[in-house]
Computed example of a mutant assay.
Amino acid sequence: MSDRRSEPTEIPPLLLGEGLVKTYPDGDVRALRGVSIAVAPGEFMAITGPSGCGKSTLLHLLGGLDRPSAGEVVFRGRPLSDLDLDSYRASEVGFVFQAFHLIPTLTALENVQVPMFAAGIPVGDRAGRARRLLEEVGLSHRAGHPPRRLSIGERQRVAIARALANGPSLLLADEPTGNLDSASQREILDLLSRLRADRGVTLVIVTHSAEVAAEADREIRLRDGLVVG
């Protein structure tokens, strides 16, 4: 009998950026000049580089918040141009921003529920899910507080809970520790690492922080709209 041994199966990337170019309407600003990256399922990738190098632009393209001028973003083998972007953003991607973007008139519990409307989660399930998420980020005791009554670090925890509201497979964070002191940065980084491990979520972070980048599985460095390392 012949000895047939199966070859190792290469795991396909969760997310691909292929030859991404982004030129803004006046034509004079070319934020990305042909960027190609591959993000593996469950990976923690850091995107670094100087201000204005195209980091946030790349993150917006990967998350379907903007469209490339050329090139393609591919998610689970399907180009975003073939997908319903509203559905992609609502069900597959969670966003965390430096400025939090919490609604000031809503409580922490209500802010976490906001993405659930687009995903069609039943009304009766939203509050319970939001409470569980706040508990997961250590803020169940602050559920009834509006953003103005939360510390900066607590606001970012609420924003992270909101990003997880619909159980995304991909978490995209743009300078999530940029407004935080060193102690709060460490807490948020530990929280993101724990959530990634517990949930199996893929994490892509744009950061200026060497400490954050050092925690990543891989660092992609941009300069002048190009990958340089």
Rank of each mutant, 00 (worst) to 15 (best):
residue 227 V to E: 10
residue 161 A to V: 10
residue 153 G to N: 01
residue 45 M to L: 15
residue 142 R to K: 14
residue 5 R to C: 10
residue 101 H to K: 06
residue 121 I to Q: 03
residue 130 A to E: 05
residue 152 I to V: 15
residue 68 P to E: 07
residue 122 P to W: 06
residue 154 E to W: 09
residue 221 R to G: 08
residue 174 D to M: 02
residue 110 E to A: 10
residue 196 R to M: 01
residue 63 G to V: 13
residue 223 R to I: 00
residue 196 R to E: 03
residue 229 G to I: 10
residue 195 L to P: 06
residue 80 L to H: 08
residue 13 P to A: 07
residue 138 G to M: 12
residue 88 Y to R: 02
residue 2 S to Y: 14
residue 121 I to L: 08
residue 219 E to T: 15
residue 108 A to R: 06
residue 228 V to E: 13
residue 229 G to D: 14
residue 144 G to W: 13
residue 30 R to S: 11
residue 100 F to S: 08
residue 154 E to G: 03
residue 127 A to R: 15
residue 192 L to G: 02
residue 144 G to L: 14
residue 157 R to G: 02
residue 41 P to C: 05
residue 91 S to N: 15
residue 45 M to S: 07
residue 190 D to M: 06
residue 176 P to L: 03
residue 17 G to F: 01
residue 190 D to T: 11
residue 20 L to R: 01
residue 73 V to P: 02
residue 101 H to D: 10
residue 20 L to F: 07
residue 74 V to Y: 00
residue 17 G to Y: 06
residue 226 L to Y: 12
residue 126 R to Q: 09
residue 53 C to V: 12
residue 227 V to S: 01
residue 212 V to W: 00
residue 157 R to C: 06
residue 73 V to K: 02
residue 181 D to I: 04
residue 62 L to Y: 04
residue 43 E to F: 04
residue 105 T to P: 01
residue 181 D to K: 01
residue 70 A to Q: 09
residue 228 V to G: 10
residue 168 P to H: 02
residue 17 G to V: 05
residue 56 S to D: 12
residue 198 D to T: 12
residue 221 R to Y: 03
residue 167 G to P: 03
residue 96 V to E: 07
residue 82 D to M: 11
residue 115 P to E: 07
residue 123 V to R: 14
